[in-house]
Nucleic acid binder design. Structure first.
Lengths: 330, 330
DNA sequence: CCGCTATGGGTAATCGATGTCAAACAACGC
DNA sequence: GCGTTGTTTGACATCGATTACCCATAGCGG
């Protein structure tokens, strides 16, 4: 990092004005071919690269995509982000990731912060329930995992209700009537819809829902040990567990195994590499985080390129992968 | 997002100059108490927040920490990042994450990009072998996971050689003499040192190293199926596998289980939530990604706060957690 | 030879905040 | 009353790039 090379240095070396140099660099309007050549040479000689800060300040926009998620260490989001990054970087764009730790007020701060930085586009897994303030956002916004409220916008979703129904129906079909539900706290849409699916399955099968079987994990709660132990210590313990997301599954499965309670059936909404290696292998409702990332990034990049598109909600396909843990009899 | 409120708007409302308003906002030097009050009122009335871009441009530095890792979806880095974010956000700083996909030339680009953005500090898991160009970096730099080459700098490391020795010694102590090594390609320091440890263990125990047991996975390689199958199809297949990192373990363990080959002993350098739930549970060399993140962030934040510190290399503790897979007899 | 349109290029304002420097003013001692 | 010191304050330049606006030159037809 020697002294910064500025546009004016380039212009000086090319014996022209900054304006013309700027024209060449940004490919604008007509510039004489000899002048253009001189500027290009100077750029090369000085290894000049425009200052992204100054450029954004003037242009009012940056070539950065902002991504807002709950937590990077959540394997689901980690994969989504990985895919977004891959697509963005192919196009020479930077990605800024910010996490909300599942706190609604942090989300607001974080999103505002990104907008202040004039990101060119935003991909948000929102936990807040009001996005009206994004209506006049100065850049395209794509929602992932959870839909926008009070706002027409693109969204790439998972059919939460349907997925949960698949999983719970599957357990019911295998004879279970005492099924625990494990998910995030209900403030979060995804959790609510998945719970809805759970309830619906019960209703259709005419099984009453027992409130003591519903566990809503706080974001901060470090491990699932007590939860699992308490659940199995109930006078009438569940014979099956439906876990509404990978993160919950990762917390609870180890405890279940440590307790030797693999007789409890288990279905996870969301897969993970080692799930198939457990004994019994974990039955999952699979949805591809990569394709969510890909769809979202693609949509965003197209909007950023100026395509006029109507707001659209995309849903990624789901399928049940029976592997063993979901087929254990009660 | 209505029209942007600028400092001059605040100044106008408070009937003073932009400079004075700026003084109040940044708490610099002395300002008359009545003027200060007027400015503060105006800030509140207009909901003014300084433009981070303009501020950075002028100040020459941003309140953002740049983090460079191989890949966000690597569980090890995901945890490290999670911890860095938590610490940074407590102090109101933003974190920008960029990934290199384990490509040395991308690393250079990505790092330069962050420096151009005038990040206030950098945390790098570098895969390049020359950091001389960072010697005069305009901000503090802390290396994680892999040390700096050709440069005095802080680093938070894992004792790769010692960890590998622990793991391989353990396998040897349990009677194994045919031990496969599975790691990243050797261009990466971490991989090299871990392999060194593996070799050293063999030397000490007077066991020859068989080159056909050494697997160096390419970063792009999607799954470990063929690798595992090929390894076990050798005329004299290994009776044990030492996996040099969590990512490799996550790729190989499922295949091993799918093939029903849990008679092959397995030790993983790096733990993961489900490892203890497998049958047999996975013996690991445990090192805490969170504490790496914490140490690195702490060090960086202190430097950013201006503390003068001598370059220091920190090493996080390692311990062997025997769980079963590493104690399988040959 | 004049006026008109292209074309290439320069000057200076701008984005929004902050640093420099000096003016304005009060208080103080003499 | 005057010089001195110290506190507030503001005009202006600056960070580095982009752009609105204007000017110069050449080529053209009449």
């Amino acid at each position: 990092m020697t002294r910064r090379v500025r546009l004016s240095d380039v212009a000086a070396l090319a014996k022209t004005s900054t304006k013309t140099a700027s024209r060449v660099i940004n490919g604008h309007s007509r510039v004489g071919s000899d002048t253009r050549a001189r500027v290009e040479q100077a750029v090369r000689d000085l290894d000049y690269r425009p200052d992204p800060l100054a450029r954004s300040l003037r242009r009012g926009t940056d070539d950065t995509i902002g991504v807002v998620v709950d937590e990077v260490s959540d394997p689901f989001f980690a994969s989504v982000i990985g895919e977004i990054e891959r697509m963005a970087l192919d196009r020479g764009m930077t990605v800024i990731i910010a996490s909300t730790q599942r706190l609604a007020d942090r989300e607001r701060i974080v999103v505002d912060g990104l907008l202040q930085r004039r990101v060119a586009g935003l991909i948000i897994a929102s936990i807040s329930d009001d996005h009206a303030h994004l209506r006049s956002a100065p850049c395209p916004v794509v929602f992932i995992d959870r839909a926008a409220a009070g706002l027409q916008a693109d969204a790439v979703l998972v059919d939460d209700r349907a997925g949960a129904r698949m999983g719970v129906d599957h357990l019911i079909a295998h004879g279970h009537r005492r099924i625990a539900y494990l998910g995030d706290r209900l403030g979060i849409d995804t959790a609510r819809y998945r719970l809805d699916g759970y309830r619906e399955s019960h209703k259709v099968a005419d099984i009453p829902v027992r409130e003591e079987y519903l566990i809503h994990m706080e974001p901060s709660l470090a491990d699932g040990r007590h939860i699992t132990e308490d659940l199995l210590a109930l006078p009438e313990p569940p014979t099956a567990v439906f876990s509404a997301n990978t993160r919950c599954s990762l917390r609870v499965l180890p405890t279940l195994h440590r307790m030797g309670r693999t007789d409890v059936a288990f279905v996870s909404f969301g897969d993970f590499a080692t799930f198939e290696a457990l004994t019994p292998p974990v039955t999952v409702i699979d949805h591809s985080p990569e394709s969510i990332g890909r769809l979202a990034a693609d949509r965003l990049l197209r909007r950023m390129a100026g395509e006029e598109l109507a707001a659209k909600t995309m849903t990624t396909p789901l399928h049940l992968v029976p592997r063993g843990s979901g087929e254990v009899a009660p």
